[in-house]
Simulated scan of single mutants.
Amino acid sequence: MSGQESAREFTAQMSVRAGRWRLYVALMNTTEVWPEYRFGRSVPTFTDRTDALSALGFEPVPGAEWTWTEDSETPDDPASPVVLIAAIRVRSRAEVSA
């Protein structure tokens, strides 16, 4: 990779289902399987999330911050349970070190 090229950026997202958090990297516009990391039942700390991204071969893009969005489990149902989704821009660690 030349100095003018930059690592591809992706969005990592984290959500909870059935009491367990999972983090995955959405590899849009690729044929690759989306890497995924599953946490235990506690809410993952910032360090837990960074370590999980590293285990998947990614790191946050410099200056990127986690953003949180509220969604609903059942669209258009105001009584539906809330689903929290966190997201951050990431890049492949392998491409950065290449």
Rank of each mutant, 00 (worst) to 15 (best):
Q4T: 13
Q4R: 14
E5R: 03
E5H: 13
S6A: 15
A7C: 06
R8C: 13
Q13D: 10
V16M: 14
R20P: 08
W21P: 02
R22I: 08
R22A: 08
L23R: 00
Y24I: 02
Y24H: 14
V25E: 01
L27R: 05
M28Q: 14
N29W: 08
T30D: 12
E32L: 05
V33R: 00
Y37L: 04
Y37E: 00
F39W: 09
G40M: 07
P44K: 01
F46K: 15
T47I: 13
D48F: 07
D48A: 04
D51Q: 13
A52F: 06
G57S: 01
G57V: 01
F58T: 02
F58V: 04
V61D: 00
P62D: 07
G63Y: 01
A64T: 00
T67M: 07
W68Q: 13
W68R: 03
T69Y: 08
D71T: 02
S72Q: 13
P78H: 06
P78S: 04
A79V: 11
S80V: 05
P81L: 03
L84F: 12
I85Q: 09
I85L: 09
A86P: 03
A86K: 05
A86Y: 08
S92M: 05
E95H: 03
E95T: 00
V96M: 09
V96W: 10
S97D: 15
A98E: 10
